[in-house]
């Protein structure tokens, strides 16, 4: 009798441990800061702390489980109806607590103190800090594992990788002289551009161009003299949503007398790009890459047309 009881207890324990083990194996991922998160069951109440994260969650079909987003999350449309937990850099801890999340997706812009606070409160925080397109695709897969939708993640990752390959297959065979110098401008006073280790730099190089500011580190000011000297063949102008400064920046580039000697101005190769699409680490980065491919090599990828998404 005693023996049977023991066996039963052992069996129950075994099943219990096995189950929890199998769960933790399924729903375990290590984030971009090296923090490993185990979830016992797929999260039902997810909070996103950045527009890019929101786009990833919706693209994986987890949209219904998203409880809170930031005020900047405007894509897809459904995200606009979700509760707002603050903007990207200032987040409302109380609001987050009242939403009782079982997974919080933070970003590189989430303040460290906020992450520490959230973890002290025993909340599951997973941080996405991607610096390259490949890393974003990896992050998408990690989120799909945590969310219990691994197959959706793999399918999405595969689609994105294929689209990327379609572009790089064509641009890889270009010779150096076939790659035009591209200058990406973010602001004019001072002139502010994207150097290496930025998504913009990756778009330009993967799409078969040379980034004029490729030797600068990250986002940086740049001497206007140097831009004239390096003579860009193409200029891409960031269009930030809603503000009035985008037209001002475009006007500056196309009308300022100091820009007139550049090939890009002479040949009218100045293009607007949507800042939401080109700067958010999410599935739309591939769309951004396609845009840059069209801008830089229309003969290979077709004509680029700027559409204001709003």
């Amino acid at each position: 009798m005693k023996k049977t009881l023991r066996t039963i207890i052992q069996l129950i324990l075994f099943i219990f441990i096995f189950q929890s083990l199998s769960y933790s194996q399924e729903l375990t991922a290590t984030d971009d800061t090296g923090f490993t998160l185990h979830l016992l069951q797929p999260p039902q109440r997810i909070i996103s702390l950045s527009p890019g994260n929101t786009e990833i969650l919706f693209a994986l079909g987890l949209g219904e489980k998203v409880m809170g987003v930031t005020t900047y999350c405007n894509e897809p449309q459904e995200a606009l109806t979700k509760e707002k937990i603050g903007n990207v850099t200032e987040i409302d801890l109380e609001k987050i607590l009242t939403l009782q999340p079982d997974l919080i997706l933070a970003s590189s812009l989430t303040p460290d103190e906020a992450i520490v606070r959230l973890r002290e409160l025993n909340l599951s925080v997973f941080i996405l800090k991607s610096e390259s397109i490949a890393q974003v695709i990896e992050d998408i897969q990690k989120v799909s594992i945590l969310g219990g939708v691994e197959s959706a993640g793999q399918a999405l990752a595969q689609t994105l990788q294929e689209k990327m390959k379609q572009i790089t297959d064509k641009t890889n065979s270009l010779t150096d002289t076939q790659k035009p110098v591209v200058f990406h401008i973010i602001w004019h006073d001072p002139i502010w551009t994207a150097g290496n280790h930025t998504f913009i730099n990756e778009f330009i190089t993967l799409a078969g161009g040379k980034n004029l500011a490729g030797d600068l580190n990250g986002y940086s000011t740049v001497d206007i003299e140097e831009i004239i000297r390096r003579n860009p063949a193409i200029i891409t102008v960031i269009e930030s949503h809603g503000g009035s400064d985008q037209s001002q920046l475009y006007q500056f580039v196309t009308t300022d007398s100091r820009f007139q000697s550049m090939d890009a101005i002479k040949n009218q190769q100045v293009y607007l790009v949507d800042s939401d699409i080109v700067s958010r680490p999410g599935p739309r980065l591939i769309t951004a890459l396609e845009f840059f491919a069209q801008i830089i090599h229309p003969e290979l990828f077709g004509k680029y047309e700027f559409k204001n998404q709003k």
């Binding site: 900047y72 602001w187 006073d189 001072p190 002139i191 206007i224 930030s240 400064d245 100091r258 800042s275």
Partner: peptide, 20 residues
């Protein structure tokens, strides 16, 4: 300011960039 923050920061720092 949100996304316009960098414009303000630059303005306040003081610079002669973009002199015309």
């Amino acid at each position: 300011a949100g996304e316009n923050l960098h414009q303000m920061v630059f303005w306040i720092m003081g610079g002669l960039w973009n002199s015309s």
